[in-house]
Design a protein around this nucleic acid. Sequence first.
DNA 1: CGTTGAAATGTAACCGGTTACACTATAGTA
DNA 2: TACTATAGTGTAACCGGTTACATTTCAACG
Lengths: 319, 319
Amino acid sequence: MTTIRDIAKLANVSVATVSRIINHSGKVSMETKDRVKQIIKETNYHPNQVARTLYQKRSKMIGIIIPDLNNRFYTQIIDGIQEIIQKYGYTALISFSASSDNAKYQQYINNFENNNVDGIITSAFTINPNFQIHTPFVMYDSANIKDSVVRIASDNVKGGKESIDLLKNSAKNILIQHWPLTLPTIKERIESMITELNKLHINFVLEETSESDPSIAAQSTLEKYQQFDAIITVNDLYAARIIKESQRRNLKIPDDFQIVGYDNNILCEYTYPTITTIDQQPELIGKVAAQRLLQLINGDDSTQNSIVNVLPIKRNSTY
Amino acid sequence: MTTIRDIAKLANVSVATVSRIINHSGKVSMETKDRVKQIIKETNYHPNQVARTLYQKRSKMIGIIIPDLNNRFYTQIIDGIQEIIQKYGYTALISFSASSDNAKYQQYINNFENNNVDGIITSAFTINPNFQIHTPFVMYDSANIKDSVVRIASDNVKGGKESIDLLKNSAKNILIQHWPLTLPTIKERIESMITELNKLHINFVLEETSESDPSIAAQSTLEKYQQFDAIITVNDLYAARIIKESQRRNLKIPDDFQIVGYDNNILCEYTYPTITTIDQQPELIGKVAAQRLLQLINGDDSTQNSIVNVLPIKRNSTY
DNA sequence: CGTTGAAATGTAACCGGTTACACTATAGTA
DNA sequence: TACTATAGTGTAACCGGTTACATTTCAACG
């Protein structure tokens, strides 16, 4: 392996001079610079980032923790993060962990910090677990909770309101499927729906569903479909399952009931009918998260949250 | 930041002793070990991985290049890789680049090597670009090409044959949509189909399609559907688009024509009808890739390829 | 009792960069 | 002419680990 000392020897200069040339710092004569650059090119020398990181404590790496790679919502967030950080020469160090596994989370954070990452982006922790973290840090997929960390939240309040807006002119009895309200993001969304429904004097029922199985949820929801003319699901996967199940039962959507999903999953365009939904703009969430992180890395110390807008997408599962 | 010298001073021992305890190497008395471990715990000391990497030239990081994070095929491969490497204490350093951008590829590989990654996993290069790479290295999503690098290939030959098997008892005229045969994986698959069709004396036509736009491809394919009783698409997304388009035209699948996709995308279960397809088992591809890489890292120098089995999945778009 | 060897520990070089500080040569200034 | 400032370069410490080699202690053995 070629080192900076090899280059220095070949060029008959000191390592300091070579270092200055690599980093465009300090004073070097044109003549020396040209000679050394030529040798660097000939030997195909690349400075070792590890040695650099050890001294400078800056690695040009960002640590990212993602709950689930097979969930498009998260991959789009990463895509957004990636787009920003690579522009500034950072590389992504990625680990995978469910939000609930706090021990693993702390372990990954330690690993990141042991590798001197310049910043860390993680999904939101469900419970406050008092993580030890000494590196610039932002959380995505969070509710708008005010505390000492930078949170990137989707506009869940608007998301809830938009869900109702999509139905308010045509639905009189709405079934709202939801996950446990202990999840702060869900809580924000559902509370916003309730506020809106009360304002509009529309009937509704809340149905808490098992977090894990959309197909079972679909079955049990459809048992009572006759009482409702619209269903709001936890996300598009649940909506797609209900559509699938209603095809089997020969129910017509939106005629027998309308349905509104959440997330604007790619599925929405391929089901029959296509699914009306709310787009959280995950790629934008990722971009905002990365931008905020870079600000922190560069010395900004504001801890204000960022709220990312949501977009209602009208398709054929509603009137 | 706590360093090994801090710990040594607190425990009244030398750094060598502390290092021995951390790494379970060399001889240390029980008494000393207990005392030092206690201090490590109290101070919450974690050894700096960067310093370690600099001396040992092993980083416990694996570099991964992925073409597209929003393609579930690739995320599942990463999932498989991840499952194996994390078991052995490795972390994933991930970069994103289309296979065709050779300059970027080389740049990412350099970046990995500058960070002393222990191994690299990338998707297959379309053209042979003579990459400079001095690190254990495997390629996934490759055709079964014999050369000096370890390639993990899907069993494209079987994949082609299985596509035909799914149709051979009911189809007489098959339209085979495909991408340019300059892509080695596609070539393997299509050639296998042709061999099989000739053997069975079934009529077929090849239709090369634009790589980028499934919806346009669907339109043009359906213009000629009447001549065929079955369509084999490039992948499930193309199949889903054709299904969508045929709903609009009031065509019935599989009655008007059958359709077979490729990849077993999650979409397949949600379209109407559901899509018959071939599963490449991407997660298994990832696992195999990671296992082969770990073997290389541990000194095995075989360059034999690995072929991963494919599974036909019969659903409702075929008889 | 002197010798041998293993256990326990310490010293310092090393990994490959960066940078504070020192030094030299030369141009500009009083 | 003596002094100062600055451009250009070099020396060596430093980042925080690992490890080859040296040293000390003490039990076992002939």
